[in-house]
């Protein structure tokens, strides 16, 4: 005699929830669309406004200004030059814009949530499992709900990227604030500081290094995600890789892949330097 356990309709349930959200959160998705789209457009326009060679010089100068390291500066110049030479310049600009916009959105949502969690023990208890979930869920899965919300394209890519890259911003902010020595917070209390004075004069400045570490991670995750997000129309360097896969052109695929590596190395070095100082 066979007995079959009825299958739980988990997938159906999730779809129902997503459907509901798609229909009822239109105002939020439209706002997000507007911000993200305008942001990318602005970035791209700014970076494409001048000839790539001039832009390469500007970026190299910027890297030198931020890091003061000869090695990284030379690497930036040569790496960017190579990207331009391979005809990947506009794809790179597109990728950089996506990363920057997604990161800005992620940290401007993530840091306040992180602060809230640090100051409110209950909030952290609720948020922590959600963060664990967000970080362990395979990155590809985020791409699927992004489509019904925003359709194929860059905004959907940014949405998926924001969700994927936000957890470290929240986690590190909470950690940084919680690590501020109790005695210092007590001291601020003893002098009659209110909640905001305590936060802005003591806790945030002392948590800065840790929070910057979180921002660094957020950017690196965003970079890895915008590459994956090429599958839902993000274009950029990831788009070049995706196209190479579809056309079975290993050469072109590697060229774009090397471009991504160059961008990743530059971003990482600059951010490390920034979070240390």
């Amino acid at each position: 005699m066979s007995f079959e356990l009825p299958r739980l309709p988990l997938g159906d349930g999730i779809e129902a929830v997503l459907d509901f959200l798609v229909h009822n959160l239109a105002f939020a998705t439209k706002a997000f669309s507007a911000v993200a789209d305008q942001g990318i457009r602005l970035m791209e326009t700014a970076m494409m406004a001048v000839h790539p060679i001039i832009m390469i010089f500007i970026l190299t100068a910027l890297v030198f200004y931020l890091t003061r390291q000869r090695g990284v500066t030379i690497f930036t110049f040569l790496g960017m030059g190579l990207i331009w030479n391979l005809g990947l310049w506009s794809a790179t600009v597109s990728t950089l814009s996506l990363v920057l916009v997604a990161t800005l959105i992620a940290i401007s949502i993530g840091i306040p949530i992180g602060i809230f969690c640090a100051l409110n023990g209950y909030a952290y208890k609720i948020v922590r499992p959600i963060l664990d979930f967000m970080q362990t869920l395979p990155a590809f899965v985020y791409l699927i709900p992004a489509i019904p919300f925003f359709g194929l394209g860059r905004v959907a890519a940014i949405f998926a990227t924001v969700i994927f890259s936000m957890p470290p911003a929240i986690r590190f902010t909470t950690l940084g604030i919680k690590q501020v020595p109790k005695e210092l917070v007590e001291c601020a209390d003893a002098f009659g500081a209110d909640r905001w004075q305590k936060l802005f004069k003591i806790q945030l400045p002392l948590a800065k290094t840790t929070i910057m570490g979180g921002v660094n991670q957020t950017i690196m995750l965003a970079l890895s995600m915008v590459v994956i997000a090429a599958m839902i129309g993000a274009r950029g360097l990831g788009g070049e890789v995706w196209r190479a896969i579809q056309r079975l052109q290993p050469g072109a695929g590697f060229e774009a892949g090397i471009g991504i590596v160059i961008v990743a190395i530059i971003l990482d070095r600059v951010l490390q330097k920034l979070s240390k100082s």
Partner: peptide, 21 residues
Amino acid sequence: LRQFRQQKFGMVFQNFALFPH
């Protein structure tokens, strides 16, 4: 209480509790 602390009390701590930044 905050006002009161500002006006009445000065506190000195065992491990100084100076703000390093």
